[in-house]
Each structure stands twice: as C-alpha cells, then as structure tokens.
Write a protein that binds this DNA or RNA. Sequence first.
DNA 1: CTCAAATGTCTATTGATATAGACAACCATA
DNA 2: TATGGTTGTCTATATCAATAGACATTTGAG
Lengths: 245, 245
Amino acid sequence: MAGLKQVQRQTGVALWRQIADRIREAIGSGAYDETGMVPPETVLALQFGVNRHTVRSALAALAQEGIVRAVQGRGTLIERKERLNFPITRRTRFTAGIGDQARETRALLLDEVKEEASADVARWLKLKPGEEVIRLETLRHADRRPVSKATSWFPAGRFAGIGAAYRKHESITKAFAELGLSDYVRATTEVTAAHANTADLADLELTPGAILLIAKAMNTDLDGVPVQYSISRFAADRVQFTIEN
Amino acid sequence: MAGLKQVQRQTGVALWRQIADRIREAIGSGAYDETGMVPPETVLALQFGVNRHTVRSALAALAQEGIVRAVQGRGTLIERKERLNFPITRRTRFTAGIGDQARETRALLLDEVKEEASADVARWLKLKPGEEVIRLETLRHADRRPVSKATSWFPAGRFAGIGAAYRKHESITKAFAELGLSDYVRATTEVTAAHANTADLADLELTPGAILLIAKAMNTDLDGVPVQYSISRFAADRVQFTIEN
DNA sequence: CTCAAATGTCTATTGATATAGACAACCATA
DNA sequence: TATGGTTGTCTATATCAATAGACATTTGAG
C-alpha cells in the first residue's frame, strides 16, 4: 500500500505532471537512494496505472529540470535531490543562512526604482502612503541555481544608494552596514504558498505548475523602526524554512 | 500592468485550472471587495486572453469549491474569501490561534495507534529508535471547512490515553493538561510546500493540483523535553503562517 | 414594459493529452 | 558474443481542453 501512488484524471492537471511531481517528491525523500536510479519506465507505468508514454512525459519534464538523466540501455539516473534549509529567526540573514549549505551564493540586483509607497508597503514600513521608498528586485542563487526572487522596499530618505551598495556587496547586511546600519532584526514573517506566475517561472528556471513558498518579511533596526519590507518567492522544491523558537 | 494576469499553455496544467487559481487568489487578496462579485465572464476572458468558455470552466470549479456562486442575469457572487492566519510562536496553539478568526473550530481524531518510533520520529522526540510512541491522526475544521490534517507522535509512556483525552476535549492543550502537563512550548517548526496527495485531497476537500503548506513541528515541556512531534498539512489557499520574532 | 448586461446552453472544430502496439538502439553481463 | 533489460522512436486512435459562434434565459434599471 505504501508504494501505491495515485493520480487522478480530468482534474485540469495532466497525468504526466502529477506523476512528475510524485517522482520528484520520492527522489527528495530518498526513496531511490539505494540504486541512485528511478525505477524502469515500465515499472512506474504499472505503479501509477498509466501508459509507459505518460511516464516518459513525466521523466522528460524532470530531465528538463535537471533532476534526472536518462541513459539508453541502463536506466534513468538521479542527478540532484537537495533541498536547502532556510532558518527564520530574529537574526535571519539570507547569505549567512544558506551560505554553509552551498559552495557559492550569488545575489543579483535586477532592478532599482524609487517610488511612492503603496498602502500595503506604507503599512509594513510604518510610513504614510505616498512617502518615497526604494524598491529593489533581487535574485538569489546557490551553487548557480536560482533559489529565490525578492521584491524589497526601503525608506528612501534613510537608505539612498542601497541599490549600488547591494550590487557591490551582494548582501543586504553589508549594504545596510555601508549605509550606517550596523545591525537589524527580523520582526515578522508571513509564509504562504502559491503557483508560480510566468515571470517567476523564467527567473527561477522552473516549469509551469511549480510551487512557490512566499515569505513576506519585515526587518527593523534595534530601536524597532522598520528598515525593510520584502516579498520573497522561493522555489518550493529547493528549500524549506525552519522556525526555531 | 497590475491587472494583467498571465497563463501558459502546454504546461500540463489546464488553462481553466490556472485561471481558477488566479481568481481564487484575487478573491483572497480582496481584489473584488468593492462589488462582492467577480468581473463578468467576458471581461475575465479578455483579461486572461482566453475564450469565455475557458473562464466558465474556471468559475465552475470555484463554484464547486463553494467560493463563488453564479446567478444568471446578475453575475458571479463571491461566497467566501477567508484565509485564516496561523501564528507560529513559542506559544503556538492551534485552537487558540485560529479560534478568534472562526466562529466554530472542530478537531477530529481519525486514528490512534501505538507503534515503535521510526528513525525520524525518534530523532525529533529524542528517543531511541524502536521505543514506543503513540501516533494520532487528526483533522481540524474551522467553520465546518477542513483546514489541516496532522500526524502527531507522543512518547507512549508519559502520555498513555492521550487519544481519548484529545477526542474528549478536541484540543492538544487540554489533553496535555488532563495528563498532567500544564504547559508546553513550540521548539521548532519546519515549513515546506508540496502538491496534495489523494488521501489529503479527500480529507481536506481539495481538488487535484491543490497546494499544501506542510509544517513539521516539535513541542517540548518547560524543561525542554520533547512531548510532541507532528507533521501538519494545511490547505495552502485557506491559511497563511505568521512568524513573529 | 423595454432594453442592456449578464449567465446558461448548444453545436462544431482544432490542438493537446493519453493509450496502444511495434520495433530500434543501447548497455551490462553471463 | 549472445541475451535480457532498458530507453528511444514511430504510427495510430480516442478523449480531454480550448476556441468560435449563435442564441436562450434571467435580472435590474430606466
């Protein structure tokens, strides 16, 4: 019973995609660690109760993601199965949190815009709607794989030049330091999940139907004054959050 | 630009399902609060760049979920739009956390089993693998809608009878109290996201392709001794987590 | 009452998804 | 080198998903 994986028809989600999701999960949970390979296509087809061609569509999608690699005559090898851990604490920092789990981390600044605070942004940063804020669009990689895409807002008066500082240091913590803020704390984090939209799919190198973990976070200085509000979108199959209380 | 919602073809996820997901999100974020109605089908079709029939399939799915109700001649009314907030803190409790946002909460005990701790369970509860634990399968409702399904493990020696106590009080906190544990704290929470499997779909009354927020949590007594390890699966479109540091 | 706006229903057609079967190509091993 | 097991490719067919158009039905407002 444990090995029986069910898929459903006429649900608006193609069978090959459902099967790809289940195999991806099984790989992540170490189900095939003994062999380092996915079971043969004919076996999977039998397990899922579908045609072999349908399984092949699923495996093709996983190969496209770089998770497996099919070798004619041998089988389908597992290439990757990691899931990064992202701790969320009062002292949450992206680079330090991910850094020890990846050989190389990168942080790219995609865009920097000065704009007026929307109602939502104003509420989080405790500003008046319409006050000026700086918005940064950033993309973070670990070992050359995109991990998260984030939109961050900062009070414009206090943090002029944060875009340049971020581009230079590839770190919010160091950018803050250059602008005279030596320490800050994570005040609030809201976590939700949703399907990825087209822009996120492209930037995070995901396939449609992929899931995102979404974290809305607010950082303050040591006096409790908001310094950053951000919405980060993580590829759900590459990360998990850990909350230590 | 803000009103432009994108959908993709040939991705294994039907357009009507992608559109249903986006409309559900828009409803949840209050986008249609002014009118209490979804825009007309022809308008939605134009916005998403699809045929009106495709939009109708999406709305039919949402109607099936009880989120909207179409009325001929008038429009499509929004029936429900809540997203419960679930705070995760050192003092996280399900009933108290959700209680003030719902008129009625229920907690059902689906199953109670005494078993030997697996490696994973033993590690979290700081037991030796093979020591006896009690496993509870529980289902939680808010206002008659299923919110989460959880599997919990407790050290068997210390908490014999917790199943009966939980069934009586419909609360872990009260069940603990009856067994002599007056207070406990949330030590660790790990959050991930994944697609729902068939069993979860049925119990949580979801449609295939739905997303789950998954929280692995460990509670300890005031001396730091683990008292509960649980894996909770939440319907992602019905809840969000808030982490206050 | 009349009309505009909205949802409901029907038919027809095209492309994507899934099944079915057959066979080729390749690999490891006996 | 022969063989069994595996992935790769091709053809054919049935069903689902999506488009297109037309018209009916219901509602609310003028």
